[in-house]
Design a protein around this nucleic acid. Structure first.
Length: 970
RNA sequence: GCGGGUGUGGUGGAACUGGUAGACACGCAGGAUUUAGGUUCCUGUGCCUCGGCGUGCGGGUUCGAGUCCCGCCUCCCGCACCA
């Protein structure tokens, strides 16, 4: 038997922690009352203060288990949530599982088990690991995206989107233009003729199939035959967001090819403006806002129509519109470029080269057709990487055709070149070498004329375009003169002229493309869509949801040689004919008919697009979320976030969302889009899902490489301290190895599991260490050795309350001295502020200081240690609960009010005044806090050290009572 | 190339609106307790020649600069022929 059986050891911590975790679970400590829905508890809501919803990024239940980096964000949100419970708020903090998707399916294929089995097993493991960390989630609100009751509503939301269209002229509640409306409204307008049908035949003359096609072309979820990212190595298509700049899949790093395939698309582009504008109303890191703005890529300018001199006989002239951000430079357009894949290229190509075509323009080919074909072939063979390698060298070839510059009638030669991208703007540009460096480079290559339309400043280099500010030159025709105008005025004048002449219009262009929403995968939500004999898509009626994912004999996708660009996707669901072919009565009056189910599945982003809404009302079987619950938890707040423009309305949304920056574009953009559609349809009253978003840093861990550059098992590496001031060295099996820092995981062989940490130290120590490593937003290196600092603190605190030998509470009911009491109140004030602003590292430092001060006292005063325990509770809840109980309190610490500082103690009676001479600290003196400027000045000037340093006399004295005096000698 | 961030002891990091640089912790050194060990306790610890020097580098503003201004550099992240 040890002499100190009540010592705070790992064993004792384990015992305490598990006991409190059991009690929290039994008592439902973290269950937050809802105002409405199946759990309606208005009394419970009224008993608490304001609401606070805290959100973590939706985790994927990995088969490898957690490492110490995973819980960082969860611990931070748990500390924040627990702090706010102590402020009396109704705090909702829940965690579910994003269990559909590619990684789950790949893991299942690897292990030869059904993905449902592997994901469910993984969830059990992850839940156990998270529970052991003492995370205070409302466990009633947990679910997984693979639950039928959850994806039923994912499908339901899809149906809402499918049954909507974007009316650009509809007025929103905020007065803006454009919102989603039910497709039934559109059909009524088309039938009534108040909305004309595109094309030459009116609605009444169309067949039902044709009418369906018209309506489908408006839907927010639609199928389209479009160039998509086909990834043979994964056997599926991918969204633009899932393809890297190198033209490979983000997952797996397989080559991705552009293929024309019929796929489901989401009309996210309809929301481009709102997605960009509404970033002003949320409190997010500027970096993430910038990333989203760049991805949306809004730029304003003008559309200008160029008429082609076509080679082929046509009835109507071929019009080639371009998008330009610099319509003011139109007079400087000296040539015209199309993307190699531009569909109008063939209409421009004549049988023979025009008279006087320079040899350099022909690419050495005898005819334009041959030159164009050859260039198109070589361009299509080039990968994205190769295209980027040669950004400086412009290539291209003359088509033999011309267009007319609408401002001056000039005949501009038309080239095709791969520096013009089919995917942006119209795939055609007017080339202004005087104002655009890329055009300038091309012009030099092909000896094309350069006209400056903005006066460059003196000394502007001859071999460069000028894109800056300046007066317009060379820009006049009979009706219009821009000469002398600044760039902004010239743009406006040109746009006005183009619009008046019907040659173009001001316009806004976006980089954002519609969202490719279907995957040829098994492990995803089935689309709630069936096709009739005519191939027309119908939404499955609500009463038939969910469309359950059937069991299939083989859930592995058909993958191909990663380089086999000509292969075609084959969805696993298409191998289950008895599921695909169904007889249904859709309730549309057509009776029972034979339908074919959609065999694609949704991407894994679907489930994470609305999961935060389901936390609000997870047991609701009538709707995805009771509107009253949504209004309570997410509704717009009275005050806008800091930095929002004056006069805007608060968008609402979760009060704090913490997560890594890797989802800055994908998930955060998709979820915002769905939320805005639901807002337009009146399903939610908040306009944004995430009002405040905090981007956390990562925990990095040391990894070691041997002489061959191979990673070695980090836990087996021995450190040898360096000589004074020298770097330490490391060996593995006696061989020297090199240390680096990188992400934790199998690939770097530096896995550190939270299980090991709480076995060696306890969960409270792990939580405390992770919170005190540094600012949450920074990436920090893990150092297992440093963890002892955190456990020592908890041990010192424990000893301040509990006798290690007898287990008795040693706290004394004595008056603390003034210094201790002052320190307490300062700590309270500081820790409150730190918790509020997520500065957990400095909060912990302040708690350690207070505890260290108590250690030095002959007896620990209850009046000080009790608030210390309460303040520690958010970070180290188990030890705080235990000490709180040992201090004689019942009922748990979770809802004990957070201490409030007495302002009287925040001001000292006496202050250490710093005495500087010429800005350097030379002396210090204790002075009354309320000392007057004159008294302080007199006191300081009489100090011995000051007199010694100011023998030549005093020039000035700066007095900042009571803390600082600076004497400037002659 | 464009945009954003970062740079402080041997290490992770503190420092509110310009006002005692290095809180807190690791490590290290010395000591204590212990048969021993350390996940124990105490003390010390920015650097160098007691007077100085010190917040990436060079200037500037100020009585006073890690903090403000100008010019560079480093590393990290994002975007990248976006018309």
């Amino acid at each position: 038997m040890s002499e100190t059986p009540y010592r705070y050891t790992a064993e004792l911590a384990d015992h305490i922690e598990v006991a409190w975790q059991d009690r929290w679970e039994e008592e439902g400590t973290f269950e937050a009352p809802n105002p409405a829905g199946p759990w309606a508890d208005p009394t419970g809501v009224a008993a608490l203060g304001t609401k606070m919803i805290v959100l973590d990024m939706f985790p994927y239940p990995s088969g490898a288990g957690l490492h110490i980096g995973h819980p960082l964000g969860y611990i931070a949100t748990d500390v924040y949530s627990r702090f706010h419970r102590m402020l009396g708020k109704n705090v909702l903090h829940a965690l579910g599982y994003d269990a559909f998707g590619l990684p789950a399916e790949q893991y299942a294929v690897q292990t030869g088990q059904h993905p449902r089995k592997t994901t469910e097993d993984n969830i059990v493991i992850m839940k156990r690991q998270l529970r052991r960390l003492g995370l205070g989630f409302d466990n009633r609100r947990s679910y997984a995206t693979v639950d039928e009751e959850y994806y039923r509503w994912t499908q339901w939301i899809f149906v809402q989107i499918f049954n909507s269209w974007y009316d650009v002229s509809a007025v929103r509640p905020d007065g803006g233009l454009g919102r989603a409306r039910p497709i039934a409204d559109l059909r009524a307008e088309l039938e009534a003729g108040t909305r004309p049908v595109e094309g030459d035949r009116p609605w009444a003359q169309l067949t039902e199939v044709e009418r369906a096609a018209v309506v489908d072309s408006y839907r927010l979820a639609y199928t389209a035959e479009a160039p998509v990212n086909w990834c043979p190595g994964l056997g599926t298509v991918l969204s633009n967001e899932e393809v890297t700049n190198e033209g490979r899949s983000e997952r797996g790093n397989f080559p991705v090819y552009r293929r024309n395939l019929r796929q489901w698309m989401m009309r996210i582009t309809a929301y481009a403006d709102r997605l960009a504008d509404d970033l002003d109303r949320v409190d997010w890191p500027e970096k993430v806002k910038t990333m989203q703005r760049n991805w949306i890529g809004r730029s304003s300018g003008a559309r200008v129509d160029f008429v082609a001199e076509t080679a082929l006989p046509t009835f109507a002239p071929v019009v080639l519109p371009v998008f330009t951000t610099r319509p003011d430079t139109l007079f400087g357009a000296t040539f015209f470029v199309l993307a190699p894949e531009h569909p109008d290229v063939p209409t421009l190509v004549p049988a023979a080269w025009p008279e006087g075509t320079p040899a350099a323009w022909t690419g050495g080919h005898a005819t334009p057709a041959a030159a164009v074909a050859a260039y198109q072939r070589s361009a299509s063979r080039k990968s994205e990487v190769e295209r980027q390698m040669e950004t400086k060298d412009k290539t291209g070839v003359f088509t033999g055709g011309y267009v007319v510059n609408p401002v001056n009638g000039a005949k501009l030669p038309v080239f095709i070149a791969d520096y013009v991208l089919m995917g942006y703007g119209t795939g055609a540009i007017m080339a202004v070498p005087g104002g655009d460096q890329r055009d300038f480079d091309f012009a030099r290559q092909f000896e094309l004329p350069v006209v400056f339309t903005v006066q460059p400043p003196p000394g502007h280099p001859q071999d460069q375009a000028y894109a800056g500010e300046g007066p317009a030159i060379n820009s006049a025709n009979d009706e219009l003169s821009l000469d002398g105008l600044g760039v902004a005025d010239a743009k406006a004048a040109m746009i006005a002229w183009l619009e008046a002449k019907g040659l173009g219009a001001g316009s806004v262009n976006y980089k954002l493309r519609d969202w490719l929403f279907s995957r040829q995968r098994y492990w995803g939500e089935p689309f709630p869509v069936v096709f009739d004999e005519d191939g027309v898509a119908h939404a499955v009626p609500e009463s038939m949801l969910p469309v359950a994912l059937p069991d299939v004999p083989d859930y592995a996708p058909k993958t191909y040689d990663p380089e086999d660009a000509a292969s075609a996707p084959e969805p696993p669901l298409s191998r289950v004919p008895e599921w695909v072919e169904v007889d249904l009565d859709l309730g549309d009056g057509r009776g029972v008919r034979r339908y074919r189910r959609e065999t694609n599945t949704m991407p894994n982003w679907a489930g994470s697009c609305w999961y935060y809404l389901r936390y609000l009302d997870p047991a609701n079987h009538e709707t995805f979320c009771d509107p009253e619950n949504e209004r309570y938890w997410l509704g717009p707040q009275a005050a806008t976030v800091a930095g929002a423009p004056a006069g805007v309305r608060d968008p609402g949304g979760v009060d704090l969302y913490v997560g890594g920056v890797e989802h800055a574009v994908l998930h955060l953009l998709y979820a915002r889009f769905w939320h805005k559609v639901l807002f337009d349809l009146g399903q939610v009253c908040s306009e944004e899902p995430f009002r405040t978003y905090f981007s956390q840093g990562y925990i990095q861990a040391p990894a070691y490489t041997d002489a061959r550059g191979q990673y070695v098992e980090a836990s087996e590496v021995v450190e040898h301290p360096g000589a004074h001031g020298q770097e330490p060295t490391f060996t593995w099996n006696g061989e020297p190895v090199t240390r680096e820092f990188g992400k934790v995981g199998k690939s770097l062989k530096n896995m550190i599991s939270p299980d090991d940490m709480y076995q060696s130290y306890g969960a409270d120590t792990l939580r405390l260490y992770e919170m005190s490593m540094g600012p949450l937003e920074l990436s920090k290196p893990w150092d297992t050795r440093s963890v002892v600092g955190s456990v020592r603190f908890l041990q010192r605190l424990w000893r301040n309350v509990v006798d290690e030998t007898t287990g008795e509470c040693t706290v004394a009911d004595v008056e603390p001295d003034t210094a201790t009491r002052t320190l307490l109140h300062r700590t309270v004030a500081g820790v409150r502020e730190d918790y509020e602003s997520l500065r957990f590292n400095t909060a912990v430092a302040k708690l350690i200081e207070l505890n260290n001060a108590l250690t030095k006292l002959p007896a620990v005063p209850r009046e000080v240690v009790e608030p210390l325990v309460v303040m520690l509770a958010p970070v180290a809840p188990h030890i705080a609960e235990e000490l709180w109980a040992r201090l004689g309190h019942e009922g748990g610490i979770t809802y004990v009010p957070f201490p409030v500082a007495d302002p009287a103690y925040l001001v000292d009676d006496t202050v250490t005044c710093v005495i500087q001479v010429k800005g350097k600290v030379r002396d210090r003196v204790e002075v009354p806090a309320d000392i007057t400027e004159a008294d302080l000045r007199e006191l300081v000037l009489a100090r011995e050290k000051v007199l010694a340093l100011t023998e030549a006399g005093v020039r000035t004295v700066i007095v900042r009572p009571p803390s600082l005096v600076n004497v400037v000698p002659m």
